[in-house]
Computed example of a mutant assay.
Amino acid sequence: MRETQGQTVQVSPLSDDLAFLDIVTEWDLSSAYHSWKPSIVVPPTFLPGTLPRVIAICNQKGGAGKTTTALELAMSLIARGLRVRLIDADPQEACLTVWLRYFWPEDLAEPARKSLEHLYFDQTVTLQDITYPTPYKGLYFVPSFPDLEDVETKHPTGTDTNLQYHLSKPDDGFDVTIIDCGPSLGPLTVSALVASQDVIIPVQAASGLDVRGAAALNRTIRSVQGRLNPQLRVASVVLTDFEKSTLARQIGGKLAKAYPNAVILPARTSVRIGEAQLDKEPLRVFAPTATTGLDYDRGASVLFGNKGAA
């Protein structure tokens, strides 16, 4: 990891003046809809994560908000003073590598530039070799390109445990590593789950199909827990594009039952997300008054307690 450009933007927590969600131990599903207030559910059994920590953002259904969740959570954590590495494990062209600005070293010619795909096929490449700085202080990035799909089709030796191996090496100074998984339950997602302590599952708050997709993911998680990573837990379900509705309340209630030890975090919808993607900026930088960013700030506080807080 060569840092030839200085990171210049200091990211701060968003203003508490924005409307925020209360924290409860469970949603009230029996009250009349007009008197129901959406809140963040933190079960009594939930324990904030210790540091350092690896988190996989997973849901095999496309459009669930995985990339937004990965980036905005990372931004919330660096705003708390933590050092964060984002790994783009999605081989699609419309992925985090397209959204987030990052810096290639100035002395590194294009043919020598390496990405996540090289970590699986070249045993001489280390995670540090493919980790690049971004414009945001404390945030570093591992990019991917469509050739990462070769990992899914060619199954290089040790795919399942590759990321785990590299992330288990001596401390490199990162407090949190966040892995943005692609829309499948293939080898890349399994590799991310094997390497992680926590899974965060984004689910569209207005999509019953996303609830069914989360059930399929749960089978994969149980398989990984049984074979390769018994310490893996579902830390949170993020209800993306959240707006108060009867359907959103039903979906949140079902997911709270499916994952009784996980935080249920509503991330309110914002029309500015698409604009932020086009402008290649995180939402909280592009539109700091959007309540979505504050929701992820609150989520970071719950998931990590006071770690990194000023």
Rank of each mutant, 00 (worst) to 15 (best):
T157A: 10
G49C: 04
Q92M: 15
P48C: 08
C58R: 02
D88L: 08
L139M: 03
Q92T: 14
P52R: 01
P91K: 09
F103K: 04
M75Q: 08
D90H: 09
E106N: 11
D175A: 11
A109W: 15
D122I: 14
G173Y: 05
L119S: 13
T97L: 06
L119G: 07
Q60C: 15
G65K: 00
Y140E: 15
S168W: 08
K169P: 01
P135L: 12
A112C: 14
V176T: 05
P52F: 01
P156D: 07
N162F: 15
D107T: 04
Q123E: 10
I57F: 01
Q92R: 13
P133K: 03
M75R: 14
K154N: 14
G49M: 06
E110W: 12
P105N: 07
C95A: 13
A74Y: 00
V125P: 00
Y165L: 15
T97P: 04
T131E: 10
T67D: 00
L73C: 00
R113E: 06
V125Y: 00
R85V: 05
Y102C: 07
L86N: 01
L96I: 03
D171T: 12
R83V: 15
L100I: 04
L47N: 12
V42Y: 05
P170T: 11
I78F: 02
H166I: 08
E106K: 15
T69N: 00
P111A: 14
S115H: 08
T157M: 10
K66D: 00
I130Y: 03
E152N: 15
M75T: 08
L96E: 02
E117D: 15
P105T: 11
F145C: 10
P105G: 07
E149K: 14
L86G: 02
L163I: 12
D90L: 13
S168C: 14
L96H: 02
D88G: 06
R85D: 04
D160K: 13
